[in-house]
Amino acid sequence: MASQGTKRSYEQMETDGERQNATEIRASVGKMIDGIGRFYIQMCTELKLSDYEGRLIQNSLTIERMVLSAFDERRNKYLEEHPSAGKDPKKTGGPIYKRVDRKWMRELVLYDKEEIRRIWRQANNGDDATAGLTHMMIWHSNLNDTTYQRTRALVRTGMDPRMCSLMQGSTLPRRSGAAGAAVKGVGTMVMELIRMIKRGINDRNFWRGENGRKTRSAYERMCNILKGKFQTAAQRAMMDQVRESRNPGNAEIEDLIFLARSALILRGSVAHKSCLPACVYGPAVASGYDFEKEGYSLVGIDPFKLLQNSQVYSLIRPNENPAHKSQLVWMACNSAAFEDLRVLSFIRGTKVSPRGKLSTRGVQIASNENMDAMESSTLELRSRYWAIRTRSGGNTNQQRASAGQISVQPAFSVQRNLPFDKPTIMAAFTGNTEGRTSDMRAEIIRMMEGAKPEEMSFQGRGVFELSDERAANPIVPSFDMSNEGSYFFGDNAEEYDN
């Protein structure tokens, strides 16, 4: 993207840094990872977990959730003011799984939030270390993106479920800051804005008074975040219109849905970061690795190297396929839920299948599930090659597409044709070009129609051997075009429920 120079890199967003050079960025990201790792080690000690239990991804998720809940100030305040039966607002906890007599047992633990905050700050040299908290939120978000298709949420806001490739980060909490905003897809931002506008339509006082002023500035800020994701002048001009509207209503909703559809071809720039579970960072720190000293990046080879040398386990339900569970977590670790499966298959070195073909449910185990038949197995999170994460949407291309997802959002900077089903997408653009945004709409449609099938995206960008740390010898991959490109292809993934 041309304006790259004016933006802070995501590592800076990730670490609240002012302008830093590459070495400083690597050190501050490393410091953040160190903090998460030290916190995780301490929690495993508190909970008396064995090494194996500490490497269980379900335990990692519970521990991450506990610290996120302990620092969720708004919710904590709300819980104190609106006490609900049987919930102690000062405590947080969740299921911890232990191996007892050759069987997995679930144990519900409860801790004072104050105590968890103390352990977290102690692991982070006394700081609140917001960057580390956001990092864990993005890992949870990436896992949700890989596990669930947001059909219901899309339909509720009037969008087409086939636009799911635009929904990265749709389950990120509001408090995820600049680093969170960077990884949100165009569809996620559109959905947040539509929800806001709908509230304004239904509630006369939404934009009024002292609160209304705050609401208005939040609305304009979200519009600017979305505008910054678009790469064409016409899309940005249309966002200006939406932002400046005196009284946002149905016309703005129409414009936003139009823009979301246009992003299936004229893709937005959305950041991709490899955020790993805390149970990967903990053992690495415990083994003596100093992330701050060595430096770390979320968008280069580092996460690949770390996963190459990590042992992570997962509980497996009786009829689940461990290899499929591994694929789910591998995609989440690489922030690749909406990437082209052919690119992923090449990088991973084994075939990556669409969601609907995987015999696996989510990673988390519900409290009512029976533990008797639970097994555990090693997650295979290694890769054959590594590639640089991208934040450009890439230019655009036609490809055989599917009944489910009709476009992709690249996660890796790797040369390819970008699949999208042009006739299906263009069919949504018939007729409606009147109104105050008509010239911009016409211009956007013209650009979409001009998108050429034979153009290559990320020209000359390749993948790298894991021994090639400096990215000196790019390998331009070859793809098996007979395979499906979309992950949520004609899909039956479970729906995400809060």
Rank of each mutant, 00 (worst) to 15 (best):
residue 357 K to A: 09
residue 376 S to R: 05
residue 126 G to V: 01
residue 474 P to C: 15
residue 223 C to Y: 15
residue 362 G to M: 11
residue 404 G to P: 04
residue 79 L to S: 01
residue 392 S to F: 05
residue 122 Q to K: 01
residue 379 L to W: 12
residue 45 T to A: 06
residue 379 L to S: 08
residue 489 F to Q: 10
residue 82 H to F: 00
residue 326 S to Y: 11
residue 305 K to E: 06
residue 497 D to F: 03
residue 176 S to K: 08
residue 141 S to Q: 12
residue 8 R to W: 15
residue 405 Q to S: 10
residue 395 N to V: 04
residue 198 K to C: 10
residue 227 K to C: 04
residue 54 G to L: 13
residue 3 S to Y: 02
residue 359 S to D: 07
residue 419 P to V: 00
residue 229 K to D: 11
residue 39 F to C: 13
residue 247 N to I: 08
residue 256 L to D: 14
residue 350 T to K: 06
residue 247 N to F: 04
residue 88 D to Y: 07
residue 75 R to M: 08
residue 14 E to N: 14
residue 8 R to S: 11
residue 296 Y to N: 14
residue 8 R to N: 11
residue 68 L to K: 04
residue 316 I to V: 03
residue 283 P to G: 00
residue 118 R to W: 10
residue 92 T to E: 11
residue 32 M to G: 14
residue 423 P to V: 03
residue 289 Y to N: 14
residue 367 S to N: 00
residue 88 D to R: 00
residue 454 E to S: 14
residue 299 V to R: 08
residue 50 S to H: 01
residue 470 R to H: 11
residue 41 I to G: 00
residue 59 N to D: 07
residue 445 I to W: 07
residue 105 M to I: 06
residue 404 G to R: 03
residue 137 M to T: 08
residue 461 R to S: 13
residue 344 L to V: 06
residue 186 V to E: 00
residue 377 S to A: 15
residue 22 A to R: 01
residue 23 T to E: 13
residue 225 I to Q: 08
residue 411 A to E: 03
residue 324 H to F: 10
residue 98 K to A: 05
residue 307 L to M: 05
residue 468 D to G: 06
residue 28 S to L: 07
residue 368 N to P: 00
residue 226 L to H: 08
residue 313 Y to L: 03
residue 268 G to Q: 09
residue 228 G to P: 13
residue 341 L to Y: 12
residue 431 G to R: 12
residue 201 I to T: 05
residue 487 Y to F: 05
residue 72 D to V: 04
residue 479 F to G: 01
residue 228 G to N: 10
residue 56 L to F: 03
residue 173 P to F: 01
residue 22 A to V: 12
residue 272 H to G: 11
residue 118 R to V: 10
residue 414 V to D: 10
residue 175 R to K: 05
residue 192 E to P: 08
residue 362 G to W: 13
residue 170 S to C: 15
residue 127 D to I: 01
residue 128 D to C: 12
residue 359 S to V: 00
residue 46 E to Q: 06
residue 431 G to C: 00
residue 345 S to L: 02
residue 324 H to D: 02
residue 54 G to F: 07
residue 98 K to P: 03
